[in-house]
């Protein structure tokens, strides 16, 4: 920790303070601020937490508590693309577990992990509200339904193409 504070910041502190200052007036500003920071920097750096805490007049522990409670907030940036695959009951009934195995074996993707080249993060999600089109996923925030192995392969191909 002591060494960490000496290391150069991986984010623009001025920009972070600007974001925090722009939202601090809201009632219950914590989540809007955390979302805005993550949108801007791709993750919530541990050294953003004291900035948020001081702007909202709460303890660092309270701010850290909020960041760490919610599944959405990352402590490190995600890959350039994020594939969130639904593993809740409706998608289970249509074979999402088979798709997860397919991703693992054919594409070497494991939920919760980012590929070594930083291209893609695969995440579990529990329900996207696309239950009449199961199995479903979110690809960079856009929904896809009626997934099968072929559609997944095509999707991953497109993402690779988009990267090049």
């Amino acid at each position: 920790m002591g060494q960490d504070t000496q290391a150069p910041l991986s984010f623009d502190e001025g920009r972070a303070l600007e974001i925090i200052g722009g939202l601090a007036h809201l009632e219950g500003a914590m989540l809007p601020i955390l979302h805005a920071l993550q949108d801007a920097f791709g993750h919530i750096d541990a050294r953003m937490v004291p900035l948020v805490a001081s702007a909202l007049n709460v303890s660092r522990a309270d701010a850290h508590g909020a960041v760490s409670f919610y599944h959405d907030f990352r402590d490190a940036p995600a890959g350039r693309h994020v594939l969130r695959i639904c593993r809740a009951e409706s998608c289970q009934s249509m074979g999402c577990e088979r798709l997860v195995e397919h991703l693992r074996h054919t594409h070497r993707l494991t939920p919760g992990e980012t590929t070594a080249d930083g291209a893609l993060t695969l995440e579990n999600v529990y329900c996207l509200g696309q239950c009449a089109l199961s199995p479903a996923a979110l690809v960079d925030g856009e929904p896809v339904g009626r997934l099968d192995e072929k559609r997944l392969d095509a999707l991953l191909g497109q993402l690779k193409g988009a990267r090049a």
């Binding site: 919610y70 907030f73 999600v125």
Partner: peptide, 20 residues
Amino acid sequence: AGAYVCGEETSLLESLEGRR
């Protein structure tokens, strides 16, 4: 922010107030 339990009303209120 991705917490199923926030569908419970008091947990949702805590979340709106900016806490866990």
